[in-house]
């Protein structure tokens, strides 16, 4: 119990410090590496919270692919972030307000880890039961992902597909030979 708490506290401290470092740093490479580290620590956090599938995904997608993309993009971008002239007061204030609201509302949220919370009483037990009886595979996450909420996953596949197509369309090389300036078939003529 104590060890769990210690690990948790340790990870949270790291995450907070990374987040604060991100506000401070203005070097792009640090930013990217810190983001990657943040994802990785978040993945560890997910493991302590029993979410192994999520941790796996976060580690491979959040810390892996995202970082590769950031690094690949970074190669073409300025290496330093400039200080902005405009004030950061309004964004900071609105963040503080939103955070305040969240903390205010947290008193009515169920306590962490309580089995009696509605979230654990409603629906979730049926998944656990059903995964064994209706579907028959041990990984409940997979059965929820692919069957009970299979449509979400379909949508998500489509999101990935959308992003892929979008990036391909955006970063496509232009034909150097002919610039696409084809003439409209509509005719305009000067009226003398």
């Amino acid at each position: 119990m104590i060890s769990e708490l210690l690990i948790n506290a340790f990870l949270v401290t790291i995450m907070l410090s990374i987040a604060i470092a991100l506000i401070k740093t203005r070097t792009v490479i640090f930013t990217v590496i810190l983001t990657s580290a943040y994802s990785l620590v978040a993945a560890l956090m997910f493991i302590t919270l029993d979410a192994v599938d999520v941790a796996f995904t976060e580690a491979s997608v959040g810390a892996g692919i995202s970082t590769i993309l950031f690094l690949a993009a970074m190669a073409y971008l300025p290496k330093k972030e400039e200080k902005s002239i405009s004030s950061e007061f309004v964004p900071a204030l609105s963040c503080i307000i939103l955070g305040g609201i969240l903390i205010w509302c947290s008193y009515d949220l169920p306590e962490i880890g309580q089995l009696t919370a509605p979230i654990h009483q409603h629906i979730a037990p049926e998944y656990i039961k059903g995964s064994k009886e209706d579907i028959g595979i041990p990984n409940i996450v997979t059965s929820v992902l692919a069957s009970y909420r299979g449509y979400d996953t379909f949508g998500e596949t489509i999101v990935v597909f959308t992003a892929g197509v979008a990036v391909l369309a955006l970063l496509q090389k232009k034909d150097p030979a002919k610039k696409n300036k084809s003439k409209p078939k509509q005719k305009i003529r000067k009226n003398a």
Partner: peptide
């Protein structure tokens, strides 16, 4: 398991 599934989706 449900939040895990949701978050898998959200990560992607």
């Amino acid at each position: 398991p449900l939040p895990h599934v949701l978050i898998l989706t959200a990560i992607v």
